[in-house]
Design a protein around this nucleic acid. Structure first.
Length: 928
RNA sequence: GCUCAGGUGGUGGAAUAGGUAGACACGCAGGACUUAAAAUCCUGUGGGCAGCAAUGUCCGUACGGGUUCGAUUCCCGUCCCGAGCACCA
């Protein structure tokens, strides 16, 4: 009987759906295991062969865990809010909900063909009101809480109000914006608007004015991780800096916990590094410099004295400060500009502001700046140093002002050289004639009381002195900024916030979800308001509602919790479900979320943890990043100004243009010339210069995309080879974590393997296995395989275990093995990888239940532990082979056993042994 | 510039608490079956040299050093590719 994969796969997919084979319930009698894929954004293009890579790996792991007796939660859903659907809506007028629905249906069809073991009864969609109710709910919780640094957790704002009313805010140690100190009496006298403004600076979800990434083409602000190289990640439009009032999440309050708790996670070092980098903890000191403006441009009477605060990690270098620098956006700019410098400063600010983020980057390291006219005083030396303004100082980090030490900071050095400012070396023997000496090492000189100390000693000593003088204190700064949470877009979660006399108020929980309203167009309104400004009656109890919507990461931040209890309409996740499923044991997805989703999700989880809604500190215990599958593009070479194409091997000597050709009309780099002529009208009368009667295409590795004509659709693979072959081949392609090009031509190998495996169960056309006991050779094949596959799956080394299956089947074929004892176990072992063929064979073997829950452990245990040690054996100093001996052999016995071993005897071939040496590192050297 | 990961046949890739490099697969070449094709099966396949041949022998894991009886694996330096961050004081 032929291996009819189309029939078999259809049959078993229907069987799984009918029997709800993969639906799970919390079951305290079994250990739980939660395997999660990063849910996809359902784009209009559908899935290509690269998308399912991670899903296949997680599916194999899920099925494998089921065999081992775990209760496996393996859900799937859609990250369905987002820009592409909305952009499409703007162009076509089609409602994003409609296109999204259509795309989801297409995704589901494609996913179903690959035979995944998802529990679809738990599907979530972020754009479903029943789902986003809980996104809005979480936002309201954040709105209703502040971060208390003393208890190091989120606390209710109501508690803060009580403290303010009782004792003012002087004793409150919270993560907050700039607030003035007030007493209880003052607080009690403030009006409602004033109180609201103050509380806003404490809330974890707060509204605040900051410089944001504004993307004019998309008409919205973007978070830092949504911008790459000054362009929007979605669409690639230019982004500029703009000051705007926006909703933000106080992620920075959690910076230290996000850093600390990473230690216990089983994530790759490189991913942890990326997060560490993004959080960017740096220890240093905040220090006050007195600055005097003799003749203020504002017209105020001079001299005006100010105290300027800066942040530095190099307090040891204060003796080398020769100037100060302010960010162009700094509040000190206005205060310190003198009358005679006014025009120059103004001109500089204007041109700095006009530049987009991209332009600023294009001019990397081009030094610009302007002098304010004022001077500051070096607190250690008493010297007067000029205060400058420059773009290289960022408003958003530290205090937006720095002390410049040109001798030991390369940016300050470049600036000093440009504007001829003095440079004072502070490290003994350092050469600063060409560049600064940035390393934190060496012995200090020219540094008063710090001279003679090493840098490592001097840093704390200098800070101690600063603290003693009362001009500063130790401080830790983070690079991690609060997340901008508003988007001026339509297709996202509406904020459950309305405004009463300008005071933002929460829509009460019982009125959630606050549904996205209908609008006539998806563009901003004529007066520049977000699209929700077009909605008729976008009000709550007569008061206007917030018009921006939440960003993409809002809906994806807690979806893993919702899968645990997806139909609960009284809680995001019930206590029982949370206690049973806890958190994600294995999370598989791409690295592109390292600094976005994976930070936000961890933050979101920690916040809910503080409030007692979840019991785990971290959402994702183990994380594996699958690599990208790239496209393998094919090229043809057209001789310039002709319609003649020359085969790749002969193209030297011709002046040719390289043209992408659809990979679907190329087989093993050979062009189907007839199909090519039909492909495009302009190629209808194409001529070819062939080599050996064939047209050979060139190839290259690129991103898989429509425009490169290198997209391979998994549906086509399923049609011609079957889902089991696709699954095996995707794993066989290479290590999971590695990026690699897709090349369909290798697929025959794994397909052949499945056919061989199938044939082991048949004699001619008749299915039949032998009930005879297996021999030693057959058992050895099986045991080797069990051990290898067990090891490989646990290490996510799926590619080598596919090889192991191939070797085993080749060996069994050679042994003409058709014993049930062997083959039945092979079926179980293979079922996570190739579930359809395994189900079919399992049922042919007479089983009535699905192979999904067959018992695997009893087969494994016996063979995974081996009580042996390998001894490398060398002859006359040259390593030859290893012999395997029992573990607990006494030292003297080892030599005897080695000499008695069949491999040794064979190698020596009767030669007389003169000496056997056992070297301490377990080498056995035989001299003859 | 900083951080991380990597460089092995024609191709994808095996093998690292240091131990016979190139498993497995693709491709290619030859053969069997077939009127023919598909499918299937068998043989060969890193390079050089010697040999009719079995085989022998030398060179080979980006490059140059080092440690070691022994290095693809460990250490130092150089080159190259990839990813992330990018004036973070």
């Amino acid at each position: 009987m032929e291996y009819d994969f189309l029939d078999i796969e259809k049959k078993w997919q229907a069987y799984w759906a009918e029997n709800k084979t993969f639906e799970v319930k919390a079951d305290p009698s079994k250990p739980k295991y939660y395997v999660l894929d990063m849910f996809p954004y359902p784009s209009g293009a559908g899935l290509h062969v690269g998308h399912p890579l991670g899903y296949i790996a997680s599916d194999i792991y899920s099925r494998y865990k089921r065999l081992k007796g775990f209760n496996v939660l393996h859900p799937m859903g859609y990250d369905a809010f987002g820009l592409p659907a909305e952009q499409y809506a703007i162009q076509t007028g089609m409602h994003p909900a409609e296109t999204t629905e259509k795309n989801i249906r297409r995704y589901r069809e494609q996913l179903d063909r690959i035979g995944f073991s998802y529990d679809w009864s738990r599907e979530v969609r972020t754009c479903d009101p029943a789902y986003y109710k809980w996104t809005q709910w979480a936002f309201l919780q954040m709105f209703g809480h502040y971060y208390d640094k003393d208890t190091d957790k989120a606390q209710p704002v109501s508690q803060l109000e009580e403290i303010f009313a009782r004792e003012g805010n002087a004793g409150v140690n919270a993560a907050c914006g700039d607030v003035e100190i007030f007493t209880a009496e003052q607080w009690n006298a403030f009006d409602e608007k004033r109180r609201s403004d103050i509380l806003m600076k404490y809330r974890i979800a707060y509204q605040g004015e900051t410089a944001v990434n504004w993307c004019p083409a998309l008409g919205t602000v973007l978070a830092n991780d949504e911008v790459k190289e000054g362009l929007s990640v979605r669409g690639g439009y230019p982004v500029e800096q703009k000051k705007m009032k926006q909703w933000q999440l106080r992620v920075s309050a959690y910076a230290d916990r996000l850093l600390r708790d990473m230690e216990e996670l089983e994530w790759t070092d490189s991913l942890k590094d990326m997060q560490r980098n993004w959080i960017g903890k740096s220890q240093g000191a905040e220090m006050i410099f007195k600055a005097v403006n003799e003749n203020p441009a504002s017209g105020a009477p001079g001299p005006q004295e100010y105290e300027m605060t800066i942040f530095t990690t190099r307090a040891d270098t204060v003796f080398g400060v020769t100037f100060m620098v302010l960010a162009p956006e700094s509040e000190w700019v206005e205060k310190l500009t003198t009358r005679d410098r006014k025009e120059d400063v103004k001109a500089y600010l204007v041109q700095a502001k006009r530049k987009t983020e991209r332009e600023r980057m294009a001019e990397t390291r081009k030094v610009t700046g302007v002098f304010t006219g004022s001077y500051a005083v070096n607190p250690f030396t008493g010297d007067k140093v000029p205060v400058w303004i420059s773009e290289y100082v960022l408003a958003g980090y530290g205090t937006g002002a720095i002390m410049a030490v040109p001798a030991h900071d390369s940016r300050d050095y470049a600036f000093a050289k440009q504007f001829n400012l003095p440079i004072i070396p502070l490290i003994e023997g350092c050469d600063i004639s060409r560049e600064s000496f940035d390393a934190k090492e060496g012995i200090l000189c020219n540094s008063g009381f710090l001279s003679g100390k090493t840098v490592q000693e001097a840093i704390p000593a200098a800070i101690d002195e600063v603290e003693r003088l009362g001009i500063g204190k130790r401080r830790i700064n983070y690079r991690l900024r609060d997340a901008i949470f508003s988007r001026q877009r339509y297709w996202g979660e509406p904020f459950p916030i309305y405004y009463k006399d300008g005071v933002p108020l929460p829509v009460p929980e019982e009125d959630l979800p606050l549904r996205l309203p209908e609008v006539d167009k998806f563009l901003p309104t004529e007066d520049g308001e977000p699209p929700l400004g077009r909605a008729a009656n976008w009000t709550y109890k007569g008061y206007p509602l917030e018009k921006s919507t939440m960003p993409g990461f809002a809906g994806s931040s807690a979806y893993y919790l919702r899968y645990m209890d997806p139909h609960n309409d009284t809680a995001l996740v019930s206590r029982e479900a949370d206690l049973y499923w806890k958190n994600v044991d294995l999370y598989i997805g791409g690295t592109e979320h390292a600094t976005g989703h994976l930070i936000y999700s961890r933050f979101w989880n920690k916040f809910l943890y503080d409030l007692g809604y979840v019991t785990e500190k971290e959402p994702f215990k183990k994380l594996v990043n699958q690599g990208m599958i790239q496209g393998r593009s094919n090229f043809v070479y057209r001789i310039k100004n002709t319609n003649t194409f020359v085969s790749c091997g002969l193209k030297e000597g011709y002046d040719t243009t390289e043209i992408h050709v659809d990979v679907n009309i190329v087989y093993n780099d050979r062009l189907d010339v007839e199909a090519f002529r039909k492909w495009r009208p302009e190629f209808a009368d194409a001529e070819f210069i062939l080599e050996n009667g064939e047209y050979i295409c060139g190839y290259g590795v690129e991103k898989m995309s429509k425009s490169m004509f290198n997209v391979v659709n998994p549906d086509n693979i399923c049609n011609s080879y079957g889902a089991d072959t696709l699954r095996l081949y995707e794993m066989f392609l290479g290590p999971l974590e590695q990026s690699k090009p897709w090349d369909t031509k290798g697929i025959d190998g794994v397909h052949r393997f499945l056919k061989k495996f199938w044939r082991l169960f048949f004699t001619g056309d008749v299915f039949g296995v032998s009930e005879e006991k297996a021999g030693a050779a057959e058992l050895k094949v099986l045991h080797k395989l069990i051990r290898k596959v067990d090891e490989d799956v646990e290490n996510f080394s799926f590619n080598t275990s596919v090889s192991a299956f191939m070797i085993a089947v080749n060996e069994l074929q050679e042994l003409r093995c058709n014993k049930r004892e062997i083959l039945e176990k092979m079926v179980i072992l293979l079922s996570p990888y190739a579930p359809h063929i395994s189900e079919e064979l399992w049922s042919l073997l007479g089983h009535r239940e699905s192979v999904t829950y067959a018992s695997f452990p009893e087969y494994v245990e016996a063979y995974t532990i081996e009580n042996t040690v390998e001894y490398p054996v060398s002859f006359n100093g040259k390593m030859r082979f290893k012999v395997t001996l029992p573990k607990d052999l006494p030292a003297g016995e080892v030599e005897k056993a080695v000499l008695a071993h069949e491999s040794t005897a064979k190698y020596l071939g009767g030669a007389k042994v003169r000496k056997v040496i056992v070297v301490p590192s377990k080498i056995i050297n035989i001299v003859f």
